[in-house]
């Protein structure tokens, strides 16, 4: 990791997990301790859940498909979170999309995929389904059936952001904001006015479309504006619809959601992308503040999100 420490603004920014990692604390004296926790947790989840590392736990889990394998607390908890989100989103965010991702060419670090890969769009086929993954709590073991490949890309960063925020707040006793690739988690006692978070298409954008203040929970954004590549002649993206195993066909460009946790916010945002038009109703039925931008650039806000909301979703 390379680091750019800005103690004056109590913010630390670095890179890891193939994206931008940031942490902001409400007390300058604990910044370096908070950074240490961030780096520990990021290294831990990378070693546990990276499907691009041959030495990661999840890669070894795939090699022992069909058998119960005892895993670390980190991987077990991350898988537990992924399955919880799969259930909560009615299967729209499914961790068994790994094989579908590989068929689309996303089988290595994205920097190697971005220039494009050869091949052609595969025929639609549903992914194996999250219910086939078996967790045994009594032994912290996991069984992945043969032919099933896991991809925790939709939940692992957000889960880690929550974990870092909780650990910093608990051990250092300060309010903290953690942003891993744009997945934002708040821990501890935030400043009275909250942490100001820009809402953008890309987490690296300097200018935000709007800025909101958050005091609790998490905020996450999913979308198809990045991690796009060419598979032969077809342009594809990284949000896979579990019912087809293909990139989701969606009217949304980006979806941002605020929730009680960053994990929940990210899963809800991705689920809305996958659900397409019905994602709008799904978010509202759960009372989640959300901001959706459609492919025409129009902005839609559910109740609870600051701003003006159009009356209905146009045809």
């Amino acid at each position: 990791m390379t680091a750019d420490i800005g103690v004056a603004d109590l913010r630390y920014r670095t890179r890891g997990l193939g994206t931008l990692l940031e942490i902001v604390v409400a007390a300058p004296s604990v910044l370096l301790d908070a950074v240490r926790i961030l780096e520990e947790e990021v290294a831990r989840i990378d070693a546990a859940a990276s499907r691009f590392r041959a030495d990661s736990e999840i890669s070894r889990l795939h090699r022992f498909a069909g058998r119960h394998v005892v895993v670390s607390d980190t991987l077990f908890s991350a898988l537990d979170a992924a399955l919880t989100m799969a259930e909560a989103t009615d299967g729209a965010v499914d961790p068994t999309v790994g094989e579908a991702m590989c068929r689309l060419g996303y089988d290595r670090d994205f920097s190697l995929v971005a220039p494009g890969v050869s091949g052609e769009l595969p025929a639609p086929a549903p992914v194996p389904g999250w219910r086939r993954v078996v967790l045994d709590r009594s032994r912290s073991s996991v069984l992945v059936p043969p032919g099933v490949a896991l991809d925790l890309g939709a939940t692992a960063k957000a889960w880690t952001a929550d974990r870092v925020a909780a650990r910093v707040a608990a051990t250092l006793g300060v309010g903290v904001l953690v942003a891993l690739g744009g997945d934002v988690a708040i821990g501890g006692d935030a400043p009275e006015a909250g942490f100001a978070v820009g809402v953008t298409d890309r987490c690296t954008d300097d200018r935000s479309a709007e800025t909101v203040a958050l005091r609790t929970g998490g905020l996450a954004t999913s979308g198809t504006v990045v991690r796009r590549w060419h598979l032969g002649d077809s342009e594809v993206h990284h949000i896979v619809d579990p019912t087809t195993g293909l990139p989701a066909v969606t009217p949304w460009r980006v979806v941002s959601v605020a929730a009680a946790s960053c994990l929940g916010a990210n899963a809800a945002a991705t689920a809305a992308m996958v659900m397409g038009r019905s994602g709008w109703d799904w978010l509202q039925s759960r009372g989640l503040p959300a901001r959706l931008v459609d492919t025409a650039g129009r902005v839609w806000r559910t109740p609870g999100w600051p701003g003006v909301t159009p009356d209905r979703l146009a045809g």
Binding site: T84, A88, A196, V197, G198, C203, A213, T216
Partner: peptide, 25 residues
């Protein structure tokens, strides 16, 4: 509690410069 719940405090608009951004990565 539901696995995905609304935040206990809703986001509010602010004109302050953002500390970080939430966007796609």
């Amino acid at each position: 509690a539901p696995a995905i719940a609304p935040p206990t405090t809703v986001p509010v608009q602010t004109s302050r410069p953002p500390a970080v951004s939430s966007g796609v990565s």
